[in-house]
Design a protein around this nucleic acid. Structure first.
Lengths: 262, 262
DNA sequence: GAGTGGTCTAGACCACTGT
DNA sequence: CAGTGGTCTAGACCACTCC
């Protein structure tokens, strides 16, 4: 037996996919849809909730239900790591463009609003294992919110971890007021004699936790991309672990893998 | 004013995060929760639906609502491309392990159920642009479903496109009954004189379409990872485009970026 | 103030699961 | 079979948006 709300959702979905309703169009009100389909309002709402979870429509309180338009995406390219490394040893003036974020987005530092917060924590189990240090080792936890100046919602939430003893040789690295640091993390590590030899990135996706949805201003149903970036130095030691939370609807990750020639 | 269903969801969420309810535990029935919180059943259901969309619980018809346990993940490593290339020129016996899927999963071909279907299509706009060919050019569309033999749901849906003229020199490549082809796509391309020089992968996440949720057996709220893989030959020509749909809760993508030494 | 989506109720019935 | 989640109703009231 076909469920009423699925019948309604199917019909609306079809009309959207067929282009009868274009991006940005407003759907009829819930009461109108209820009249049209001869169903109760909650049943219509079930259908709309389903379409919202599928990312097809956006329900906005007091305004209406709209066909969602594809978001403009920010591309995050793994070429950023080599790009940042190339700049890490340059003079401060040449590193003025901060880190790799500007490289990705094509924006300059003026267009970005940047918020950093440092905190000292003792290593929990998973981080200690990843760094290869004892549980409880002092870590520097650095959290970043990067906004586009023209938008309210940040496009990434980043938490980076460094082993405190590794960077303590340069006290400036412990002071959050030095952010944004010209040249990014790779330059920071360079000041304490560390050269990054390779970067590993692990990507998964999951639904956002409520606070993530709030901070990234995610519409209902939009997942987050979770990226754990691990940087290794030339001795294969883990020197930085960063957890990056990205809005799934505005982010594209680009990875290029060159292959050896025959 | 705090909304009733959010109050309930917050309380249940807290109890799950605090470990009072462990993975696999069953929550009280909806009517019991309604009695406990002194709310109507639909209100309790709103709360449970929210937690389900967050991926915290799994509601199973006729059985109950359970705290979701983290899925075991399949890792997809970009080292797979070099690995596959290294084998592409080997003798058939040495390529017996098929393509890169076995490399990723650590499973051998016996453990995998493999389903391939070939179809000839004419290039739509986006694919034509990506290949650098005119719209309408004949393409070979190959769709794959790969199951783990012990599970019913496939862990990836793959659609691969090749320019038909490029591979027509080897008619065996047009016949789906030759799948699974030992050595994978890179060996197939090798038989028509193509060497893959680099692979680009673009990753995004979004909620699953209904048929994707069905095919991958995704619980409500689980997003899919979408990966578009583009293979370039040594002349920078696009030789293969593959769209890969992966269940967000069971997949981890691993990308390693080596950096040049100072 | 008019119109929209959001929440909530009380109760009914159905569909699925396991005993 | 009893117990569970799933669907649905008819109507009420609230909160938000925009005129």
């Amino acid at each position: 037996m076909p469920k009423a709300y699925e019948v309604i959702a199917d019909d609306l979905r079809r009309s959207i996919r067929a282009g009868e309703r274009g991006p940005g169009d407003r759907l009829p009100s819930e009461t109108d849809l209820a009249r049209y389909y001869r169903r109760s309002v909650p049943t219509v709402q079930n259908a709309l909730r389903l379409l919202s979870a599928e990312g097809l429509v956006d329900r906005r309180h007091g305004r209406g239900t709209f066909v969602r338009r594809p978001r403009t995406v920010a591309v995050r390219d793994n070429g950023r790591h080599q790009w940042e490394k190339d700049r890490a040893r340059k003079a401060p003036a040449e590193r003025a463009g901060t880190g790799a974020t500007e490289h990705d987005t094509g924006l300059c530092q003026r267009d970005l609003v940047f918020h950093a917060q440092y905190r000292e924590v003792s290593a929990p189990r998973d981080l200690a294992d990843a760094f290869g240090v004892p549980v409880g080792t002092a870590l520097l936890e650095r959290t970043y919110r990067t906004h586009c100046a023209t938008e309210s919602a940040p496009f990434s939430l980043v938490t980076s971890y460094l082993v405190r003893d590794l960077i303590a040789a340069n006290p400036a690295l412990l002071d959050e007021t030095n952010e944004p640091w010209p040249g990014g993390t790779q330059n920071q590590l360079y000041t304490v004699g560390v050269e990054v030899a390779r970067v590993e990135e692990r990507v998964t996706a999951r639904p956002p936790a409520p606070e993530e949805a709030r901070e990234l201003d995610l519409p209902a149903g939009t997942p987050v991309l979770l990226l754990r970036k691990t940087s290794y130095d030339i001795n294969d030691r883990v020197v930085d672990i960063s957890d990056v939370t990205l809005p799934g609807d505005r982010t594209e990750l680009l990875f290029t893998t060159p292959l050896e020639r025959w």
